[in-house]
Simulated scan of single mutants.
Amino acid sequence: MLRPKIQEIIAQSEDPEQAAFRVLKFMEEKIGLWGNGWFDDDPAMERFLEES
């Protein structure tokens, strides 16, 4: 289930921005958002994924 894992990621994050990065990384791993252009206008997210 996705919701409990997302709740866990948010609860463990230090701040909202970090939570957003971590949730989107989790979603990328599960359903592949990057290849569909979801991060095309978000260079910070692209860097986060490349560095992770």
Rank of each mutant, 00 (worst) to 15 (best):
M1S: 14
M1F: 14
M1I: 12
L2M: 12
R3K: 12
R3V: 12
R3P: 15
P4W: 03
P4Q: 06
P4T: 09
P4D: 04
K5Y: 08
K5F: 07
K5R: 13
I6T: 00
I6V: 13
I6D: 01
Q7N: 11
Q7V: 15
Q7F: 15
Q7T: 14
Q7R: 14
E8I: 02
E8T: 09
I9F: 05
I10E: 04
I10S: 09
I10V: 15
A11R: 13
A11I: 06
A11P: 08
Q12H: 11
Q12F: 07
Q12P: 09
Q12T: 11
S13L: 04
S13D: 04
S13A: 14
E14G: 03
E14K: 09
E14A: 09
D15G: 09
D15E: 11
D15V: 10
D15T: 06
D15I: 07
P16C: 14
P16G: 15
E17D: 09
E17H: 11
E17V: 15
E17G: 08
Q18W: 04
Q18Y: 01
Q18N: 08
A19T: 02
A19I: 01
A19C: 06
A20R: 10
A20F: 09
A20P: 07
A20M: 08
A20V: 05
R22W: 02
R22G: 02
V23I: 11
V23F: 03
V23R: 04
L24E: 03
L24V: 01
K25C: 06
F26N: 06
F26Y: 03
M27A: 10
M27Y: 00
M27N: 00
E28M: 01
E28C: 02
E28P: 01
E29S: 14
E29P: 02
E29M: 06
K30D: 13
K30L: 10
I31D: 04
I31S: 02
I31G: 05
I31K: 01
G32N: 07
G32R: 05
G32D: 07
G32I: 02
G32T: 06
L33N: 00
L33I: 00
L33F: 08
L33P: 00
L33V: 02
W34C: 11
W34L: 14
W34F: 11
W34D: 12
W34H: 12
G35P: 04
G35N: 07
G35E: 03
G35D: 01
G35M: 02
G37K: 08
G37A: 10
G37M: 05
W38L: 13
F39T: 04
D40E: 14
D40Y: 06
D41L: 12
D41P: 06
D41H: 12
D42I: 10
D42V: 08
D42N: 11
P43S: 09
P43Q: 11
A44M: 11
A44C: 07
A44N: 11
M45D: 00
M45F: 01
M45C: 04
M45R: 03
M45Q: 01
E46W: 05
E46K: 14
R47T: 13
F48R: 06
F48E: 06
L49E: 02
L49T: 05
L49Q: 03
L49M: 05
E51S: 13
E51P: 08
S52W: 10
S52I: 07
S52C: 10
S52H: 11
